[in-house]
């Protein structure tokens, strides 16, 4: 525990000294939030909740996949991890500290965005706000652990960048985080059911708009927890201290194991009659935000 706490303290210190970390965790979400809120003329609760969920999910994805993944690869490439390799520690506290510190860095912006949405755009704060915070903690932790697997299987910064983009882009555009699910083609809607971010979006909006609890989103929460545990386990197994240590091509397939909860979940949703899609549609058809987005797209 002493080692873990020391590593968390160190990670936090380094994170708050890194301008890139500060910009992408605080500056970018704030700019993104105000720009989107003003552009989309958010006069309704649903509209601002849409903006808030978009900004938050994009932040979670960025913090997780890029924040954890790219940093881990850079530390290996710059031979920083080699110094840790000769100390009597294992990869477990290093990876756990990376996940925990990433979550601690990100959570304040959620609070700031909620307060801003409340005071500037009259978003009523949900009674179940602790559920919202726990969900974002789980989401950030799960995506950071996935980022750590991508870092473990990538042999260089360039390779990790490509690998992260392969996961980041579909989750950004097909999960409902940036575009309502109803606006994307049918095949993409099916694909979205396999994406971890889709479940995070649905649970986030459910808690924010309908005052749902974590229990109401037990499937999404369970899948995120399972992904976190599986990914962390695999990341520890595949951890590499040194850029000279190479990883086999077959080991790269372990990414699929980390995503297996969502592969099972997506398949179940499809076989059981698109429950997830129906829920997402229902959520947005109640309000007028879909029409706002559609109108915006038509104008463009």
């Amino acid at each position: 525990m002493r080692v873990l706490l020391a590593l968390i303290r160190n990670d936090l210190r380094l994170a708050f000294r890194d301008k890139v970390v500060i910009f992408f965790n605080y500056g970018f979400p704030l700019v993104f939030f105000f720009c989107f809120a003003e552009i989309m003329n958010t006069q309704t609760e649903r509209a601002i909740s849409y903006v808030l969920s978009t900004v938050t999910i994009v932040g979670v994805l960025g913090n997780g996949l890029f924040g954890a993944g790219m940093r881990a690869v850079q530390e290996r490439e710059n031979q920083i991890l080699r110094r840790f390799k000769v100390a009597p520690i294992t990869p477990t506290p290093i990876l756990c500290a990376s996940i925990i510190s990433g979550v601690l860095v990100y959570i304040p912006i959620l609070g700031i965005l909620l307060v801003l949405a409340h005071y500037f755009y009259l978003l009523p704060l949900p009674a179940t706000w602790p559920s919202l915070i726990v969900l974002v903690i789980l989401g950030t932790a799960a995506f950071r652990s996935m980022g750590l697997i991508l870092a473990a299987v990538a042999n260089s910064s360039q390779e990790s960048n490509i690998l992260i983009q392969v996961f980041y882009m579909p989750m950004l555009f097909l999960s409902g985080a940036t575009f309502p699910i109803t606006l994307i083609p049918n095949w993409a809607q099916i694909l979205s059911q396999y994406l971890p971010a889709s479940y995070l979006v649905v649970a986030f909006r459910g808690i924010l708009l309908r005052e749902e609890s974590l229990a109401d989103n037990s499937v999404a929460v369970g899948a995120l927890i399972l992904t976190l545990c599986l990914s962390l386990f695999i990341a520890i197994r595949l951890f590499r201290w040194d850029k000279e240590e190479r990883i086999s091509s077959s080991a790269k397939l372990s990414v699929v194991i980390a995503l297996s909860p969502f592969l099972v979940l997506g398949t179940y949703q499809i076989l059981s009659g698109d429950q997830y899609i129906q829920r997402a549609q229902q959520l947005w058809e109640i309000g007028d935000q879909t029409k706002v987005i559609e109108n915006t797209l038509e104008l463009e």
Binding site: N10, L14, R17, I80, R82, R83
Partner: peptide, 10 residues
Amino acid sequence: LQATNLPPKI
């Protein structure tokens, strides 16, 4: 070690 580094901002 012959080749190693520490985080730049530590």
